[in-house]
């Protein structure tokens, strides 16, 4: 055996630290994940599949798809617009704007739901007006969509802003000098430069949109078959001691989480491999 380099720990320390890491992560991360699938299949494949025949579950899946289907595109457009303004221009109040974009991440999910109840609820600002016009936002689908939009605001923007800031404006300026229009520059130069970060932001945004619990729970009213999203349906089934069905529905969300993690890892490899700019391959800004 050779001498240990001066910047490495003794072998027993390394073994100890690796063991602590694996034990800690095993207990805290792997066990819950495995438990979801074990509990879901506790009574066999038949019982697992039967859980999805429940009309309330199907309606919850439809509502979750609808909420994510609105929240993700809306926040994609917002993320692109905000990142363009923040990363490509200098203006007073810029750091305030970036802080505000992150705000929904800092707010408790319950508070995120509450603020919409205070605006649109029966005793809220617009409550009387909405009631007079026979419109319902809280305890109805629009409230769920709004709460989902709110909690997913930051995801696309915060992936794009640092990358676009790092890339600077030279590529776009070159394109404009070469006669491209503003829209062409954005589509042909900016978008390809940020495509992987954009995809990553969309994946994270979607995961949160489909998995949000606290904010949606406050505005939902838990009307079975009408205003329950998939996570809320999991809660209802669990509280009814219908554990197999609860974990079966939860396993859908767990699979979504695994797909999200896989996509994230894949995108990170692509980012590491891809050149930072379509013009300057391999050159680091």
């Amino acid at each position: 055996m050779g001498l240990r380099p001066s910047t490495a720990e003794p072998r027993w320390v390394r073994l100890l630290l690796v063991s602590v890491t694996l034990l800690f992560l095993g207990a805290f991360l792997v066990t819950p994940l495995v438990a979801v699938f074990v509990e879901a299949f506790r009574k066999g494949l038949g019982a697992y599949l039967a859980s999805f025949a429940d009309p309330a579950v199907l309606s919850a899946i439809r509502l979750t798809l609808l909420a994510a289907g609105i929240a993700v595109p809306v926040n994609l457009v917002f993320g692109l617009a905000a990142a363009w303004a923040v990363a490509k221009f200098e203006f007073p109040g810029k750091s305030l704007l970036t802080t505000l974009i992150d705000l929904p991440l800092a707010v408790s999910p319950v508070v995120s739901g509450l603020i919409y109840v205070l605006v649109f609820g029966l005793h809220g600002w617009l409550g009387p007006w909405l009631q007079a016009h026979d419109l319902q936002v809280i305890f109805a689908v629009p409230g769920i969509v709004l709460a989902t939009v709110f909690v997913t605001v930051p995801f696309v923007a915060r992936e794009l802003i640092p990358l676009m800031q790092e890339q600077g404006t030279e590529d776009e300026e070159s394109a404009l000098t070469l006669g491209a229009s503003g829209w062409q520059t954005f589509r042909r130069v900016t978008l390809p430069n940020v495509r992987w970060a954009l995809l990553y932001g969309v994946i994270l945004c979607n995961a949160r949109a489909m998995g949000e619990f606290g904010a949606v729970s406050v505005v939902s009213g838990h009307i079975r078959g009408k205003t329950n999203t998939v996570p809320l349906q999991v809660e209802i089934l669990y509280n009814e001691y219908n554990f197999v069905a609860a974990f079966a529905v939860a396993s859908l969300l767990a699979m979504l989480a695994l797909v999200t993690l896989a996509a994230k890892t894949l995108v990170e490899w692509r980012v590491a491999a891809a050149p930072a700019s379509i013009f300057a391959a391999g050159e680091k800004p």
């Binding site: 996570p231 979504l256 993690l261």
Partner: peptide, 30 residues
């Protein structure tokens, strides 16, 4: 292991909640 670190971000909180409860219940694995 590195990819798994983000699991708590990706796993919906309700799912984490019922899974942790099941594991740490007196009859659960831990």
């Amino acid at each position: 292991v590195d990819a798994l670190i983000d699991l708590p971000f990706a796993l919906p909180t309700a799912v984490s909640g019922i899974a942790l409860t099941t594991i740490y219940a007196p009859t659960g694995w831990l």
